[in-house]
């Protein structure tokens, strides 16, 4: 399994990277490479030019500022696991980081790459949908912010322009009474989810205030479970409400059958996981885990 031939560039500044991207129409950005390089080894991807942005060290950061958590696109997944602020204030993100691929992959894989790949089987899309995150895209004319709801446009397709690079992810800082959880059922460590559910909510007394729910690998495009959100929103999370939310998610997701399971199984599993993730998120909200 040997990749095809390509030209390789390793810019050291973002401007240089953008300039290269502008000059090479067949170019692919190489971030962590943990999806791209296997695809190249199978010759499923045969880019003519690779622009390796691993040299852009200033895209590797996690910092809370101005009411949001800013994550540089080149932040490794393992850095999320090691980050005190993520572990203490962003439990949904902390949950997610632990179950992406395996520890060796997480040492190279990046948050930006995971999102830019726009693979509904990846874990960050659901998590960022639940957080209502923003994507910062930088192009030759500067940066713009894209709401996560507008970011995923198709299977492996996103709304980045041809000359743009994903440079940052911004997660709104959770207010008091907030909680989140990511629950993933996978066949074994390292596998994609059979189904996984990301929940981020804020409690309003004993009722759910706001809630967003993202689903992993049960749709061709990363999706929010808006029906489930509606069922849980403004409600006390009774067994009935949880069941209604779960059933709404089961109905609105669009899984396809594969070796991981049938459509019926994935729908019902999504129902179960939505209930569990809502419950855990609410527990965390109550426990002050934010």
């Amino acid at each position: 399994m040997i990749p095809g031939q390509f030209d390789y560039h390793a810019p050291t500044t973002l401007d240089e990277a953008l300039s290269l991207l502008g000059h090479h129409s067949g170019a692919k950005i190489l971030a962590g490479g943990q999806s791209l390089i296997p695809a190249m080894r199978f010759r499923l991807a045969q880019p003519e030019v690779l622009i390796d942005i691993n040299g852009l060290g200033d895209l590797d950061y996690i910092r809370e500022q101005d009411g949001h958590l800013a994550i540089g696109a080149m932040t490794r997944e393992s850095a999320l696991e090691a980050s005190t602020v993520v572990q203490s204030r962003y439990p949904l993100l902390a949950d997610t980081a632990r179950v992406i691929a395996d520890p060796l992959v997480r040492n190279l894989a990046t948050v930006g790459g995971n999102l830019a790949h726009a693979d509904p089987a990846n874990d960050h899309p659901a998590t960022m949908l639940a957080y209502g995150a923003e994507i910062v895209a930088t192009g030759p004319k500067g940066s713009r912010r894209i709401a996560i709801d507008d970011f995923f446009t198709g299977l492996f397709e996103n709304s980045l322009g041809d000359n743009e690079i994903l440079t940052e992810i911004r997660i709104p800082a959770p207010g008091s009474g907030s909680g989140g959880a990511y629950i993933k059922t996978e066949r074994k460590v390292g596998d994609y989810a059979i189904s996984a559910v990301a929940v981020q909510l804020a409690m309003d007394g004993d009722r759910v205030g706001t809630v967003r729910i993202g689903l992993t690998n049960v749709s061709p495009v990363p999706m929010r479970a808006v029906g489930a959100e509606a069922a849980a929103s403004r409600s006390v999370l009774s067994d009935e409400v949880l069941e209604a939310a779960g059933q709404a998610a089961a109905a609105e997701c669009e899984p396809s059958a594969d070796l991981r399971g049938s459509v019926a199984y994935k729908r019902d599993l999504t129902r179960v996981l939505v209930k569990r993730a809502l419950r855990r998120a609410a527990e965390r909200a109550a426990g002050g885990a934010s």
Binding site: Y8, A101, P103
Partner: peptide
């Protein structure tokens, strides 16, 4: 990128050396 047999340390971090180009 499944088996980890090729794991080496790059700048102290364990990575699968089949999923990185030498030039990197």
């Amino acid at each position: 990128t499944s088996c980890g047999a090729c794991t080496v340390l790059v700048n102290g971090r364990a990575i699968k050396s089949c999923t990185m180009f030498a030039v990197q």
